[in-house]
Design a protein around this nucleic acid. Structure first.
Lengths: 340, 340
DNA sequence: TTGTACGCGTTATCAA
DNA sequence: TTGATAACGCGTACAA
């Protein structure tokens, strides 16, 4: 017969309680909990019994206050929820990260910030409940670079906008853009355009630069360029603009597979066959590439592995490893499917 | 000229430091930080100046240790990453949750547990860094129900498997299944089957029950049933089995839109037109319903709003609100599109 | 091998 | 309105 509403939960057992139960001191219980080698076997079993009996779970707040570490890392994604869930690229990254973290004691806190990493997020990062952070989809202008290494070890997924001594995992996006575009020139396409990524992100800028170089190498003009924001909707309107402006286009290099699905939709709506009238090359080699009606030829990047490497770099750094590399540039390659 | 490797970061400023800087006591600084009304304006400005100067951010661990609250809630998803990202339903839920949380001071910690909420997750929930939890896609057999209200206020998205006095937000899935199936009978289909959800989840069981009742009402046999697991791949094989077993099928009620896309793919592969040969009704009204080649007729449930309501119930409970409803059953309705 | 005692950075109680 | 001071639960020298 409790008074409705918030009923008082029994307060959780503490080290102290376990110590009493096992007839030892708090310090000893702490040692057992943390697996210290210098505790006699009998005491260990006694303590463990007490822990089990009381259903004891250490208080993380107290622990991190005392130890000055939290056992958690954050994944910061400066995008809104819709984008985060909409692009399979993020799924792959997160998958890789958790694969690495699962074999450690660290916990992952996902911070899907609004596209502007608010004050709230920055404060959280600096509030001591996080030992380090992984940043994915970082945009120029957010404050994350400032926090990096000043307040917290941070590993970036993708080279940060402003130069600096930051730690990051990336691919050579210029090369990737080059490879994708070159494939289009090599199969005899003559009028090639591109749907580029946002220019406040290095991945956007670099893939465009790769496109330009490939076009230059082939002696063609690199003027059929429209920018989008790595979303389907953005790609749809960009592709429409591009087709309106350059009606005789026979190939498009699109800076992400997700965007490429938008491009394919517009081409169908305009009655242009793929790859007959227009060849399309994407970027990522994400599930979006094979899920589309016309399987995408695309520039593969090892997204899942990149997530893994990001987490690995961070964890090694947190463990005090003196010579952790500060960057890890992974390689890309073309995957031929039906669209080009 | 620092020694390579882990360079020592300057330890963060504390309340103490701010107090010295502003020539007041720690207690006063704490009051200012927490917006206590009983501090003189001059002192407030002085303290704020000191805070700004030192770039002070409160230590959350210390704060929660002292206040016995953490200012964070967890979203627990007992599914693997691939599923979590693969189903737009989750995106909607998360969207709704964050919409509610953003207008509060609470932070969201996403715990995408492996489908078996491990010991690790359960310990985390009970470790004091979380004030409450939201559980989505809870399966029978996971330990979450035990933790609920015993160790932590928990709000479930979807009625929990085992009965109990748990708090949850849901729709009437029996009714939803009925509505979807009834539409198929009402448009004159005679041989109707279903791709049901997993039977260790109430949503799976209930939608199937709704299907059964509608079939009974129409005087048709409810024998064309195959179970799947709310994934595309699962739906694909279930649909193949179903078509092999009941070749004269002219309609299928599928327990989720995501699964329905798999069903559509199989129907196309078998050369059956939709809705000509086979009519299809989905469930959710998620983006998957409109993104598919044939826009899906589907049973709408207000997923985003359900996420919002879940968070709202939890927050109100945490605020000590005495009479928070323990359940919130929202309504479904049919959305007609092209597939049936 | 075990226990004592102090400190981690806040909040909250009690006086002043 | 402000300032001491005692918790909060745990880790860890240091002592025994």
């Amino acid at each position: 017969m409790h008074a409705g509403g918030v009923r008082a939960r029994p307060s959780a057992p503490t080290l102290e309680a376990v110590a009493r139960e096992a007839n030892v001191s708090r310090a000893t219980v702490s040692r057992v909990v943390n697996g210290s080698p210098k505790v006699s076997p009998e005491v260990v079993t006694a303590v463990n019994a007490a822990i089990a009996k009381l259903n004891y779970v250490p208080n993380r707040a107290a622990r991190s206050l005392a130890s000055r570490t939290s056992g958690a890392v954050a994944l910061v994604v400066p995008e809104d929820i819709t984008r985060f869930f909409g692009d399979p690229y993020f799924a792959a990254i997160v998958q890789g990260i958790t694969r690495r973290l699962d074999e450690s004691e660290y916990l992952l806190n996902l911070l899907v910030a609004s596209s502007d990493p608010t004050h709230k997020t920055m404060r959280y990062l600096r509030s001591g409940v996080i030992d380090g952070a992984l940043v994915v989809s970082h945009h120029e202008g957010d404050d994350l670079q400032r926090v990096a290494d000043e307040a917290l070890p941070i590993v970036f997924g993708g080279r940060p906008s402003r130069p600096g001594d930051h730690i990051f995992v990336d691919v050579d996006n210029v090369e990737g853009g080059f490879i994708g575009t070159q494939h289009l020139t090599s199969i005899g396409r003559r009028r090639i355009g591109t749907i580029a990524g946002p220019l406040d992100m290095p991945a956007g800028v670099d893939r465009l630069e790769g496109f330009r170089r490939a076009m230059e190498t082939a002696g063609m003009p690199a003027d059929a360029v429209e920018n989008a924001d790595f979303t389907v909707a953005g790609a749809v309107s960009a592709t429409r603009r591009l087709l309106d402006r350059v009606p005789d286009l026979d190939a498009i290099f699109v800076a992400s597979d997700l965007m490429a699905t938008g491009t394919l939709a517009v081409l169908r709506e305009r009655g242009r066959s793929v790859p007959g009238h227009v060849a399309v090359v994407g970027f990522d080699d994400s599930p979006a590439a094979t899920a589309s009606a016309i399987p995408l030829t695309t520039v593969h990047q090892p997204s899942e592995q990149m997530g893994f490497e990001m987490a690995d770099l961070l964890l090694r750094r947190l463990s005090g490893d003196a010579d952790v590399p500060r960057r890890n540039i992974m390689s890309t390659h073309l995957v031929r499917r039906a669209s080009a």
